[in-house]
Simulated assay, not measured.
Amino acid sequence: MKFRKAITSLLALSLVGAMALTGCASKSETGTDYPKGSLEFIAPSGAGGGWDLTIRTVAKVLQDTKLVEANMPVTNKAGSGGGVNLAYMQTQKGSEKLISVYSPPILLIELNGSSEFGYKDTTPLARLITDYGAFVVPKDSKYQTITEVMDALKADPKSVKIGGNSAAGSMDHIQFLIMAKAAGVQNLKEIDYISFQDGTATAQILGGHVDLLTTGLGDVQSLVESGDLRALAHTGAERVGEGVLAEIPTCKEQGIDGVFENWRGLFGAPDMPDYAVKFWEETLAKMVETDEWKTEAAKHGWAPAYLNQADFNTFLEETNESYKLILDEIGLSSN
C-alpha cells in the first residue's frame, strides 16, 4: 500500500513537472512573456545620423516610461544606404528580437537597383515621425533664398553644385529633385549632384566644395544653430521645431508648391512572429502618446506622424509608386 502511494505521488509530481514545462513552452510560443532577454535594435548607419538618433531615442523613451523592460542595446550596421543591414535582416527571418529603423531609402535603394531587397523583405511595424529635408549653404554664400537657387538652375542646370550623403537616386538627391521639379526646373537629369557616401558632405559644404547641401533637417541642426551654415529652406508643409529650427522657412512659403517628408518608422525581421508584431503595435501606439516622446520629438524638430501597421503598409505601397515616378524621369529606376 505504501509502495502504491509512493508511486502515485511520484506520478503526480511528474505530471505537475510536465505541466509546468508545457506551460513554459506554451507561454513562450504564444509570446505572453515577450519580450525577454536582450533585443537587437539596429541603426543601418553610422553613429550620429538621423537613423541612429531615432532608434536610440525610441530605446530611451521605452526604457524611461517602463513600456519595455528588456535590454535594448543599439548597434550600427552602416553601408550602401541601408542595404548592408537589409541583407543582414534576411539572415534573421522569424526573429522576434530584431528591430530596425528606416526612412525613404528602404524604398529608394531597391527602386534604383542599389539593393535587391526592399520594405517587403521586412516586417513593417509602425511609422513614428516625420523629419524634413533641409537645404543649407555656407554662411557666406551668395544665395539668400531657395528661390534664388532654383532660378539659377532654370537658367543653367549646371550652375549650382549640389552635395548630399546619399547615393544618386536616393534620399538626399530625390528630395532636392522633387522641390526642383515643383519649382519648375527643367532637365532634372542635368543638375550636378555629388554623392559623398563616406559621410563627408557636411565637411564639403563647410569647405566650400559644393554650393548647397541637401540633407536631413535634424542632421545639420547644430551647425545651423551655431551659424556655420545657413538654412535656405526645409521641405515640410509648415514650420517645425523650436528656436533656430522654427525660423527656417519652408519651400512652400517661398512659392515652391512641394513637400517632401523624411518619415521614419520601425521594421522587424522578415516573418516576425505575430505575437511580437502585436506587442510592438500596441506598445509603440502608447509610446508616441507619452510626454517623454513628445518632448524628444519637439527637441529634434520631428513632427508626429504615427501610423499603425496596416496603415503604414498602405503608405509604403503608395509612396513607393510616387518615388518610382521621379526615378523614371531622371533615368535612375532599375525597373
Rank of each mutant, 00 (worst) to 15 (best):
D140W: 00
I162L: 15
M150F: 15
V149K: 10
N165C: 08
L177N: 02
S141A: 09
V160L: 07
F135Q: 03
A134F: 03
F135E: 01
Q175N: 06
V160I: 14
V149L: 08
T122V: 10
A152P: 02
L128S: 10
F176T: 00
A167W: 05
Q144K: 15
V149Y: 11
A155F: 02
V149P: 11
Y143T: 01
D172K: 03
A152T: 08
A180I: 01
Q175P: 05
S170N: 14
A168S: 12
D156I: 10
T123K: 12
I174W: 02
P157A: 08
A126S: 15
V160N: 04
L153C: 10
G169F: 04
R127E: 14
A152G: 05
P124S: 13
V149A: 11
G163A: 11
K161N: 09
T130A: 15
P124R: 11
P157K: 09
I129D: 06
G163H: 02
D156H: 09
K158I: 02
P138N: 13
G169H: 04
T123Y: 12
L125R: 07
L128C: 12
E148Q: 15
T145Q: 13
Y143P: 02
N165M: 12
M150L: 14
P157N: 11
Y132L: 09
T147H: 07
A180F: 00
Q175V: 04
L125Y: 09
L153A: 04
